[in-house]
Amino acid sequence: MNPVKIRRKAAVNQSACVACGCCVKVCPRQAIKVVRGIAARVLREKCVGCGKCAAECPASVISMQEAEA
C-alpha cells in the first residue's frame, strides 16, 4: 500500500476568475473565498475536495488537483 495519502484539492485559475463568488456560496467548509474582489483563493487546509465549487463556477476556472496531504 502507498503510505502517502493522495487527496483532491480545488485550485483556482486566478487570472481567469471573475470574482463572482458563486464558489464561496456552495462550499460546505468555507474553504474558498474571494480576495479583494479580484479572484477566489482556496484555503487548502480546509478544502475537502468535494468539487462543489468547481461544478458551480460559471467560468469553469476551478480544477480539482491531486495533492499529497
Binding site: 471573475v18 470574482a19 463572482c20 458563486c22 474582489g37 479580484i38 458551480e56 463556477c57 460559471p58 467560468a59
Partner: peptide, 25 residues
Amino acid sequence: LFKPRSWCVYCPMGSMTQLICKAKN
C-alpha cells in the same frame, strides 16, 4: 445553455467592479 450563473462571467457590473477592485488594490 451553460451554467446557471453564466451571466456573471460577462455581466458588465461584475466586470466593472472587478476592474475597480484591481485598480484600487
